[in-house]
Design a protein around this nucleic acid. Sequence first.
DNA 1: GAGTGGTCTAGACCACTAG
DNA 2: TAGTGGTCTAGACCACTCT
Lengths: 244, 244
Amino acid sequence: MKFVKQSDGKPLYQQIAKWMTEHINLGKWKEGYKLPAEEELAYQLNVSRGTVRKAIAKLLKQGLLEQIQGKGTFVRKQKISYPFAQELISFAEAMEIKGYYFDTDVVSYKVMQPSEWVQNKLEVGLYDLVYYVKRVRKIDYEPAIIIENWVSIDRCPGVDQANINEKGLFKVIEECADVELTYGVRSFAAKALNEEEARLLNLKEGAPVLYLDQQTFGPNDLPLECSRIVLRTDQYEVASVLKR
Amino acid sequence: MKFVKQSDGKPLYQQIAKWMTEHINLGKWKEGYKLPAEEELAYQLNVSRGTVRKAIAKLLKQGLLEQIQGKGTFVRKQKISYPFAQELISFAEAMEIKGYYFDTDVVSYKVMQPSEWVQNKLEVGLYDLVYYVKRVRKIDYEPAIIIENWVSIDRCPGVDQANINEKGLFKVIEECADVELTYGVRSFAAKALNEEEARLLNLKEGAPVLYLDQQTFGPNDLPLECSRIVLRTDQYEVASVLKR
DNA sequence: GAGTGGTCTAGACCACTAG
DNA sequence: TAGTGGTCTAGACCACTCT
């Protein structure tokens, strides 16, 4: 295996992390598999040990790998479903990491004036139009989460014309705004389902669900997107691996 | 300022991270303050740039700092209250990072046989006794969270005799078991308050709250502790900063 | 003692920001 | 162009695990 510096514009350690993720998802490295030693990997991949460690660190955070000093690096037994608490990734990316089948229904979309909440999150005025989309995501044909997104049209011109289902919203935003998303702030709360949400998720009204609200930023701390996510936790776990 | 290799048994980068956290909490570095360049810091602290970067990475994860390529490293505007989604830290540690005043009521404690849930989480049998403690934590005299902990007495002999309020449960576990806690798995869900919980938190029965369940591991993936945490999110945010 | 991860160093070059 | 963070290298020594 060979990796080339900046071959696809991505840093080496990210290419390696991706390569490792694929090995795990394709079953080449099964649960409990012991990876070659860092030194050995570095030699095989023709990079330095530090770069290998950086790639491994990424998968540790996602809960895919586990390291034990003196013993080695192992593929973790996977219980975690949404690594939503750890990395700024989209639902689709999360599902890809886990190798799950998923599906999307677009409930509605429109160009609209921002509510006060959205004005605040996106740092825009009442007359700066935003693109709104509401979707239900399904895992194995079962509705699992409701996502509402608001995107500033000023900052992401053309976002309302793009095919977000094909490319993914994050990618569309990055293309329209011609920047890279750099980080996000996600907050966790609980709420009771209202009537419409209950219908969309096939649950009872009033059932407690996880509720995330999120801002996503581009360069210079400019908010490009904000969203509200309602997540049922009775079937799929939202978990994270925490290092000491 | 000088740091010494392994002076208090802690790695250099952790000592530096602590020193930085103190600077922020004591107000020496205020919101928006621009830190010296990494190179400069490394020179001042008499360590290599890599070590400085590792310390900064820790505070980035906690949301205390923010880095912008080409511009510098800055003290973040703080909105985040519980960095519970990112690092394996106790409630007390989280409050210290933020510099908040807090308070604890012990509701009950006892030595007991583990329930099935606890047997499963701690990987013990029905006749392996566990130490149980239930506490309410208050921030500024307002009840904010309920924590129930179960600790294996076999693996942490003397835990039932120790003063956990003074030292903190994590420290007591580490001393009794004579090991270091290495990582944890925390899962996020939502639930409706039952009558007792509602009373303890001064909220209405049925109110939706965040519910975390957690396992904490020592060396060799041996679970030492498990816990259930009920968290009101109406007043304090549980948030994390997510890097892309 | 051999193998492995954890930490640390010193130096290099690149990409981005700002004057 | 100077300043700053992002990435990468090569090598060193330590702490821990297992045999």
